[in-house]
Design a protein around this nucleic acid. Structure first.
Length: 421
DNA sequence: TGGGCACCT
DNA sequence: AGGTGCC
């Protein structure tokens, strides 16, 4: 059996752990740049649609709700606490996202009561409420989790029935849109084929689905039928691309500002690269103007800058990124967003494809580069992000993202610990 | 008016 | 390269 543990209204719940006054109140968490509502407490759900831009929320509603900037440092740390707790009781766990994990329950004799205990323990030890869905496949466990969340009678833990008649009854109650892997677009196309419910999809013709859609949707059907065929990539498998990008706090055409932002993105990308022990062969830089302002001239350039030889050295990656930026930047546009992608990644182990033109970088140079990068990473790990960085970064610069309603980083910063009277 | 991936065609 | 999915 497989269980899906999903934290309830995760970001809102994290905020409430440290600010209990928010309990029972309608609260929402905003995306980066305080843009859209990306998480809502149950009380907020009837008032504000998911993904709604904050500025579109009518003033009379704004008045009675609490909106907070997203505090990923807090949510990331709370996520670790939740899943460390889970792992202690259920060792075989696959982390899936910041607020979800699958657990393997084979070998447990009382699966339902084990999960009920687990839910209570997580709440007791971390303050975070979770729901658990149990079934034979990940796709069915996701559906079971919907039921656990929606119907209070199950008290947050629900096991998908094994009885065929009961299974049919339940699948008939779900729309295909509720199924993991079926989004808005595929829902529309299925509708045209007369496939509306999860049961309809369960009964659909495999060959036809594979032909008209994809092998992905075919696998979803098999999972509905009880055959396990969706594996998650291990969270430790190296990424094939690494992208770092952000919107600016304000539209800008200032090259100095944009250079600073690109430096931050390039260094952050290089850090991620080193963490997964890869090297990049090329760096892509892009700029975007604001597509929501059609009256402004649009310009969305990007350029790929090859590296002479594959590298994970922040200095080389920043240099390439700055070079790319200079070649695409034009002063006459108001830019909204910039970003850096690291491309053509290879594992670092034994990767020493040297180029023809620079006499192969000497072993001492390589060693020095590694020492320097390791020292920087260690310092930033120990003392906090950006303690040491290359080139100036003005923390209060206008290009920095807007986070006007940020709560404290209660669990990761000594100077932001919660205060107890 | 988010960011960061992956996979498929 | 573009579309779709996930959170």
């Amino acid at each position: 059996m497989i269980g899906l543990i999903d934290c309830n209204n995760f970001y809102a719940s994290c905020e409430r752990v440290f600010n209990p006054k928010l309990e029972g109140k309608p609260i929402g968490i905003l995306s980066n740049n305080d843009g859209c509502v990306i998480a809502r407490s149950n009380e907020l759900k009837p008032l504000v649609a998911m993904g709604m831009p904050a500025y579109q929320i009518p003033p009379h509603i704004q008045k009675k709700i609490t909106l907070l900037s997203s505090n990923y440092e807090l949510y990331g740390d709370m996520s670790q606490r939740v899943f460390d707790t889970v792992r202690h009781y259920t060792a075989d766990i696959e982390l899936y996202s910041i607020d979800e994990a699958f657990i393997h329950l084979n070998g447990f004799s009382h699966v339902l009561s084990h999960c009920q205990n687990l839910k209570a323990i997580v709440k007791r030890d971390t303050g975070i409420p979770v729901s658990i869905g149990i079934a034979t496949t990940r796709t069915l466990a996701k559906l079971a989790n919907h039921i656990a969340k929606k119907h209070p009678i199950h008290q947050g833990v629900y096991c998908f029935p094994t009885d065929q008649e009961e299974k049919i009854t339940i699948l008939k109650q779900f729309s295909v849109a509720d199924i993991w892997g079926v989004g808005w677009r595929i829902t529309q196309r299925l509708k045209e084929l007369g496939i509306h419910t999860a049961w309809d999809l369960h009964q659909a013709n495999l060959k036809q689905i594979r032909q008209s859609f994809s092998v992905v949707l075919e696998r979803t059907i098999l999972e509905l039928r009880g055959m396990n065929c969706i594996e998650l990539d291990d969270l430790h498998t190296a990424k094939k691309n690494i992208m770092t990008s952000r919107s600016f706090g304000h539209l800008t055409n200032d090259l100095f500002d944009i250079q600073e932002a690109i430096r931050v993105h390039a260094s952050r990308g290089a850090e991620k690269l080193r963490k997964q022990k890869s090297v990049a062969n090329a760096v892509l830089v892009f700029l975007k103007t604001n597509r929501f302002r059609p009256e402004l001239v649009q310009y969305n350039p990007s350029i790929v800058v090859p590296l002479l030889s594959a590298s994970d050295d922040s200095r080389l990656i920043i240099h390439a990124a700055q070079k790319g930026l200079r070649s695409i930047y034009k002063p006459g546009f108001l830019f909204m967003k910039s970003g850096v992608m690291l491309l053509d990644l290879k594992t670092k182990d034994n990767y020493c494809q040297s180029d023809l033109f620079t006499a192969e970088t000497s072993a001492t140079e390589k060693h020095k580069s590694e020492q320097l990068m390791k020292t920087m990473d260690d310092i930033n790990q120990k003392m906090g992000k950006n303690t040491i960085h290359l080139g100036g970064i003005r923390q209060t610069a206008a290009w920095q993202i807007k986070r006007e309603r940020l709560s404290q980083r209660y669990t990761t910063r000594w100077d932001e610990l919660p205060f107890v009277k």
